[in-house]
Design a protein around this nucleic acid. Structure first.
Lengths: 248, 248
DNA sequence: GCACTAAAATGATATAGATCAAATTAGTGT
DNA sequence: ACACTAATTTGATCTATATCATTTTAGTGC
């Protein structure tokens, strides 16, 4: 046994995705902008969040929907994307546990400008924007830390702009793999398995290319021993070579 | 007279760019995140800003420099860009009066991730991050409003990502002209003159293309009567046609 | 182990836009 | 009005990547 081919990805059981109050608190405490809160303060904030479970492929919200919540990932991965009029999808980001998403429009009303899809089964905490505004007013340190996170996201997006305009498809894909490895990488027999299901199409939509081109690049990487890959999974075998593809 | 060809752009005199205290107050009051402040509060905040003048082409700061200030444009235009290792420039944005830029890293130290260049002569207000942090702590409403501005910038950047991955050069350029028209447009004999000096190279660096390609697109637009253009200036003659280029 | 299917790979071709190389011209200073 | 120069335009290729068309295969359920 063990010879039969199966996906190397974990298939998390439902229990893992059910958020206990302890898990909620633990994960919210890891969110950068709550890190300055003391335990009793954090406990009070945690109460305002409610937990939801989503299965792989579920839409968490759809672009153009009225935006009422800020969300934080406890477990699993979330894909943020835009569907264009011409039917092409643009993946803006894939988020890991501890990341926030949704709306930060605390004044007036708002509409989501992207869609959020559960990339794997996941557990998500949500807080209404009205409640969140109260948190910010009560703890100015949270606002300030949040501002930093928000700047950080802007930078990441600008980096994406830079790559799209100046780098080849091969380099963009190498960069994406490296980024994902930082977020979802798990050591596994000599390599780094990206612990999330994602297809050539996902990769292509992240890199701003086609599935075919993404596939060709991945084939090359595999032939060169840089990665191992199958359906919906990738493991990085030689991260240094991957980094060197990025440069040069 | 009048028959000699000269640029239609205003060449602002130095006086206009010298920031009087009244101009400072007026412009800071227009900045979205100070809009909720009452006059006496605003006056106190204004004191913490200092004014500087920059001539066209001056570097306001350079990427990788240590970041100590948040800045607000009173007069003129500022270009934010990244120089890549391969020598290509990526223009991230061109900002108009009332916009902020610089750093929002209030915790720990930081380094600018892009360069800022005076696109025209301009007057800029700066506030040290330490002082600014105090403002935020004193007026939580400012933090909240700033968070909105920051989200708005993220959206704009994501929109740029979307366009780069899904739209042709021609459409991207049409979109850029429309955006700039909103920021810098001035009615002038039947058309909308973009009141800022910017070259084909600037346009190309914004659109993620080459000067030659940008030039070809602009030539087409001019032949079709959609725009009029010369060295470093553009006027939009038929904004509806330009919008329709965007779609289709 | 076998059949099944959606994902991935591969091949052939087309094309938008890059690149390289000149020619032209708009706007300035005198 | 004239000379000057950097910005712009235009032309002729070249190439990375998209597109279209099939084939192959990884992983699942039985």
């Amino acid at each position: 046994m063990g010879s039969r081919k199966t996906t190397p990805l974990n298939n998390p059981t439902l229990e893992n995705l059910h958020c206990s109050i302890e898990l909620k608190t633990e994960k919210l405490g890891m969110v950068p902008f709550f890190q300055d809160l003391k335990q009793p303060e954090l406990d009070k904030v945690v109460e305002k969040f409610s937990a939801n479970h989503f299965s792989e492929g579920d839409e968490i919200y759809y672009q153009e929907d009225p935006a009422h919540y800020l969300r934080v990932i406890v477990e699993g991965a979330v894909k943020l994307l835009r569907y264009t009029d011409e039917g092409k999808d643009v993946v803006l980001d894939i988020l890991n546990p501890g990341s926030y998403f949704g709306s930060l429009k605390l004044l007036g009303s708002d509409v989501y400008t992207e869609s959020a899809v559960a990339q794997s089964g996941c557990c998500i905490l949500s807080i209404g924007l009205k409640d969140f505004k109260e948190v910010l007013q009560e703890y100015p340190a949270v606002s300030i830390a949040l501002l930093e996170s928000s700047s950080e996201k802007l930078r990441a997006s600008q980096e994406q702009v830079k790559q799209l305009t100046t780098q080849s498809v091969e380099k963009r894909i190498a960069n994406i793999l490296l980024t994902l490895s930082g977020k979802f990488g798990e050591e596994k027999d000599g390599g780094t398995l990206l612990q999330l299901p994602f297809s050539r199409k996902d990769l292509a939509d992240m890199a701003g290319t086609t599935t075919e081109s993404a596939s060709r690049v991945m084939s090359t990487f595999q032939k060169e021993g840089i990665i191992e890959t199958g359906r919906q999974w990738v493991a990085i075998q030689d991260i240094e070579r991957l980094r060197s593809v990025t440069k040069s």
